[in-house]
């Protein structure tokens, strides 16, 4: 009996996006990061080409965060006091991209400043040759000021700037266009909203080759099934030829998971949850794994152990070993 492997004839391809610029390209990065360009569902190499593996990013902050899980402080240690050292450590841990998130305040509690952001971006760019993402603190007014400074400081580096959200994207897009960067769009777990924001950003004149979309995922146990399905639907739409859903997807399981109790807290939780550290790492790792299966192109993590584990998973999934 012969068994044929069913193959789908997809008509669409995920858009190819490159982050970072080397000296030749007007930046100073020692390498660039290209994601997307696949013409099939995740890792189904037998069906169509998947030229670029999903990328892994590590999240760092412009200063030591106040509210991270103790496990993360333990994992990173002193480098958290210095964004440059942290970025370097992230590179050594195997990241493809340094994902720098700005804080609302500096460590003494005073509001973050344009000067500080410029200095941090400069330091991080000097400390690592990896492409860099610079993400705002999450308050529109502050972000619009800080990100403009970051964008100018990193002019020509093809940074990834974010987050562009429906209510606040114009300034970030404008500064990204002015300084040759890319943007990350984020919408709350909805196919149409994700698509709509891409259209709006593109309408401003930002080329689609410079937009990475973040559909928002939720953590394991906290709505991951919504994000998971929204991503699958977006990716199916992209492969079916819907142009405005063909952006590579970036997801942030690190941010999502390390704020939930299961990862963050060691005491006062049910015994059935098991030991804190392995469970916490598992939480982020399983979330990341599920999102890779639903089409993530860039996965932003916080714990270095998950960088190792997820990398090894991706290596396997991208190995040329064909299906029987």
């Amino acid at each position: 009996m012969t068994v044929e492997t069913p193959k789908e004839a997809w008509t669409g391809t995920v858009r190819e996006v490159t982050l970072g610029a080397t000296a030749d390209q007007g930046g100073t990065r020692s390498r660039t990061l290209t994601v997307g360009a696949e013409s099939t569902l995740p890792f189904l190499h037998f069906e169509a080409s998947i030229p670029n593996p999903p990328a892994l990013a590590l999240e760092i902050r412009d200063r030591k965060p106040d509210d991270w899980s103790p496990l993360l402080y333990e994992a990173w240690g002193d480098v958290m006091d210095d964004p440059a050292a942290w970025a370097k450590a992230a590179e050594e841990a195997g990241a493809d991209l340094v994902y720098l998130v700005l804080s609302l305040t500096t460590s003494d509690g005073s509001p973050n400043t344009v000067e500080n952001v410029r200095a941090v971006v400069r330091k991080v760019l000097d400390a690592t040759g990896l492409p860099l993402a610079v993400i705002g603190a999450g308050q529109a007014e502050v972000d619009n000021e800080l990100l403009v400074a970051a964008a100018e400081e990193g002019k020509g580096e093809r940074l990834l700037l974010g987050l562009c959200e429906e209510k606040n994207y114009r300034t970030i897009v404008a500064t990204a266009m002015a300084n040759e960067h890319l943007v990350q769009s984020r919408t709350p777990m909805d196919v149409n909203l994700a698509k709509q924001l891409v259209i709006l950003i593109n309408d401003m004149g930002m080329p689609l080759e410079r937009i990475v979309m973040d559909p928002t995922t939720g953590a394991l146990g906290y709505g991951i099934e919504y994000g998971y399905s929204v991503m699958e639907r977006l990716r199916l739409a992209a492969l079916q030829g819907d142009k405005m859903t063909q952006q590579p997807m970036i997801v942030t399981p690190g941010e999502e998971c390390w704020k939930v109790k299961e990862a963050k807290v060691g005491e006062g939780v049910p015994e059935t949850w098991g030991d804190w550290e392995p469970r916490a790492i598992a939480w982020e790792g399983i979330t990341a794994a599920a999102l890779l299966h639903s089409g993530a192109n860039v996965v932003v993590l916080r714990h270095p152990e998950n960088m190792r584990r997820t990398r090894s998973m991706i290596d396997e999934l991208m190995s040329s070993k064909a299906a029987g």
């Binding site: 619009n144 100018e152 114009r170 300034t171 897009v173 404008a174 266009m177 002015a178 401003m204």
Partner: peptide
């Protein structure tokens, strides 16, 4: 130019 340009582009 950049400072005003951004404001013109983002609609402020």
């Amino acid at each position: 130019l950049r400072s005003w340009g951004i404001q013109l582009v983002d609609g402020r």
